[in-house]
Amino acid sequence: MKSRYLRLYVYMKAIIDFIIVEKQSFQRAALLKLKSATQLPEIAGGQFANVRVDGCDKAYLRRPISIHDVDYHNNTIDLLIQEKHEGTKKLCALPVGAKLNVVLPLGNGFTMPEKDDNILLVGGGIGIAPLLYFAKTIRKDARPCVSTGVHFLLGGRTQDDLMLLDRFRNEGDVFITTNDGSMGEKGFVTEHSLWNTKKINKIYACGPMPMMKAVAKVAREKGIWCEVSLENQMACGIGACLCCVENTKEGNLCVCKEGPVFNIERLLW
């Protein structure tokens, strides 16, 4: 623990050559633990990494991936990557020992809750990834931790989509929905019974667009403060190319630089 307090804080973005030191494969995803030989910069929950895909002619651009966990002591980060197209398939197929060139940390993370907030972290599919590290930063934050604890509401199509649940259970109470009812309550996250029983005043959501829109709708109806993390298609990841824009109340904003986390009050949906 001592070294944690002696650590020099680095707030710059960095390009780091990581080495994959651990790997866990899932049906259509992989968890990669990446180790850096140099000190990691400070990373906020909800920020992302832009990962270069080497040796894949269908992936010219980097792939933006949520940061799932960070260990400053060992200089490692965890990325939970879903196989979508050729680029992410290539990343998920990388073996332990492979090098991975990563730009991080990018974008703005979730806003830290206040002491008395009753918070709910809602994740759908691979969108569960950034919520773990965000929950950890809430607990480790210098301010008093959220008194009522962290509640996760995680949704998937089937139980296969819900990975690494033990990790989430270490950080808070976990509630689950699946579309087919194979785990937790059957239905969408917005249909879970906790909405009627739990007192919530802040929602943080990450997942597929229809899920986040549904969560935003619930939040609006109930008058709950809500942040969502978008994943518009990006080219540069640092606010230069203006490709990943979301049309907001303030006009077109880069999701990579102004987001990926937005308060729903800024959005048009």
Partner: peptide
């Protein structure tokens, strides 16, 4: 304001 999203398509060795 520029054009609506989507504004980018990845291509082999380009965009």
């Amino acid at each position: 304001e520029g054009n609506p999203y989507p504004r980018m398509a990845e291509t082999p060795m380009g965009m």
